[in-house]
Simulated assay, not measured.
Amino acid sequence: MAISRKTKTSADVTVKKTSPNTKTPTHLTHYTDLAGLKGIIENNELWLSHAAFLNDPQELEHGVDQTKKVLNNLLDDEAVGVTAKARQKLIKDIAADMEEFERPAAYIACFCQRSDILSQWRGYASRQGVSITFKVPGLRSCFSDLDAELLQVAYGINEAKRHLKSVIAEKFPDIVDDIDYLLGTEKNDEIRRKFKDLLATLVPRFEHFGFREEQEWRLVIRNPPTDKLKFRPRGQLMLPYLELKSKKMKLPISAVRIGPGVNDDAVEKSVKFFLETRGYDPDLVMPSSTPYRT
Rank of each mutant, 00 (worst) to 15 (best):
49 S>P: 03
194 K>W: 12
278 R>I: 06
100 E>N: 12
188 N>D: 11
218 R>F: 02
106 A>I: 08
108 I>T: 02
33 D>H: 00
40 I>G: 07
188 N>P: 05
84 A>Y: 05
229 L>D: 00
104 P>L: 08
16 K>Y: 14
285 V>W: 00
56 D>M: 08
9 T>Y: 09
64 V>I: 10
261 G>M: 11
50 H>A: 13
280 Y>G: 13
158 N>S: 08
137 P>C: 11
186 E>G: 11
79 A>N: 15
282 P>K: 01
118 L>F: 07
22 T>L: 08
224 P>H: 10
85 K>R: 10
107 Y>C: 06
189 D>H: 11
156 G>E: 00
224 P>D: 09
180 D>V: 11
5 R>S: 15
195 F>E: 03
16 K>S: 09
39 G>R: 05
15 V>H: 03
64 V>R: 01
87 R>Q: 11
54 L>P: 03
192 R>S: 07
28 L>M: 08
103 R>K: 12
98 M>Y: 03
84 A>V: 03
120 Q>E: 08
204 P>H: 02
81 G>S: 11
47 W>K: 14
28 L>F: 08
140 R>Y: 04
83 T>W: 10
63 G>T: 02
184 G>R: 07
227 D>R: 07
183 L>E: 10
185 T>M: 11
20 P>D: 10
277 T>F: 08
117 I>L: 15
10 S>P: 03
215 Q>E: 13
151 L>Q: 14
283 D>Y: 15
281 D>S: 04
222 R>G: 04
192 R>V: 12
189 D>I: 11
22 T>V: 09
263 N>W: 07
92 K>S: 14
27 H>M: 06
259 G>F: 05
168 I>C: 05
232 R>I: 12
102 E>P: 01
274 F>Q: 06
169 A>I: 15
53 F>V: 14
133 T>F: 09
56 D>I: 10
227 D>H: 11
158 N>T: 04
190 E>I: 12
96 A>T: 10
103 R>M: 13
246 S>Q: 05
100 E>T: 15
69 K>L: 10
190 E>C: 10
253 I>H: 09
201 T>A: 01
106 A>T: 08
285 V>P: 00
281 D>G: 00
269 K>P: 01
99 E>K: 12
277 T>E: 14
213 E>V: 10
80 V>R: 15
28 L>R: 02
73 N>R: 15
131 S>I: 01
111 F>Y: 06
242 L>D: 02
14 T>M: 06
156 G>A: 01
126 S>D: 14
212 R>N: 05
2 A>I: 09
190 E>G: 08
75 L>S: 07
255 A>F: 11
76 D>N: 13
100 E>S: 14
168 I>T: 01
15 V>Q: 00
134 F>G: 00
171 K>Q: 15
33 D>P: 00
172 F>M: 13
203 V>A: 00
30 H>L: 08
